[in-house]
C-alpha cells in the first residue's frame, strides 16, 4: 500500500529531535503528587484553624495540579522540543482566559445590587434571609 512513505519529510524537515527521558520515573513522581493532592485536603479538614486549612487545601489541590500539569506538558508533550512560539501560544491562550475571568467576574460573582438580588442566591444564603425577612432587594447595602 505504501512502499514510498506517506509521512514524507514530516520528521526530517527541521524540528528539534525529541530526546526521550526516563518516563517511568516521571510517572512515579506524578503518582506521589496525586497521593499528596488527595491526602492534603483530608488533612486540612482536620485542622481547626480555618485560614491554615484553606491554605493547605488550595496548595495541595491546586498548587500540585499546576505542578503535575507542568510535568506532563514538559516531559510527555515535549514542549521544550517544539519551536519557541508554542509555549508562548499556550501561555497566550491561558492569559486570554484570565482576561475573560477578570472582565466577567465582577458581574457574575455579584449576587445583589442596589435594587436587585439574584433569587437563586437568596435561597441558599441564610444570612441574607435573616436580615431581609420580606425577601426584598438589598437597598440598604
Amino acid at each position: 500500500m505504501s512502499d514510498h512513505a506517506e509521512n514524507a519529510g514530516n520528521e526530517t524537515h527541521g524540528g528539534h529531535e525529541t530526546h526521550h527521558g526516563d518516563y517511568v520515573r516521571v510517572w512515579k513522581v506524578l503518582l506521589v503528587l496525586l497521593v499528596v493532592s488527595v491526602v492534603g485536603p483530608i488533612v486540612a479538614s482536620a485542622i481547626e484553624h480555618r485560614p491554615t486549612a484553606l491554605a493547605v487545601t488550595l496548595s495541595t489541590a491546586f498548587g500540585i495540579a499546576v505542578v503535575k500539569a507542568y510535568m506532563v506538558v514538559k516531559n510527555f508533550m515535549h514542549i521544550q522540543f517544539t519551536q519557541r512560539f508554542v509555549p508562548y501560544l499556550v501561555v497566550t491562550m491561558l492569559v486570554f482566559m484570565f482576561l475573560l475571568f477578570a472582565g466577567a467576574a465582577p458581574d457574575v460573582m455579584k449576587s445583589e445590587g442596589r435594587n436587585w438580588v439574584k433569587p437563586g442566591w437568596i435561597a441558599e444564603n441564610a444570612d441574607y434571609r435573616a436580615h431581609h425577612p420580606d425577601g426584598s432587594a438589598g437597598g440598604a447595602h
Binding site: 475573560l100 466577567a104 457574575v108 439574584k118 433569587p119 437563586g120 442566591w121 435561597a123
Partner: peptide, 15 residues
C-alpha cells in the same frame, strides 16, 4: 443562565 435557580444570564453575555 437561569437566575431563579442560581445561574447568571450576564455570564452568557460575557461568553
Amino acid at each position: 443562565f437561569d437566575p431563579t435557580r442560581g445561574g447568571d444570564p450576564i455570564l452568557w453575555q460575557h461568553l
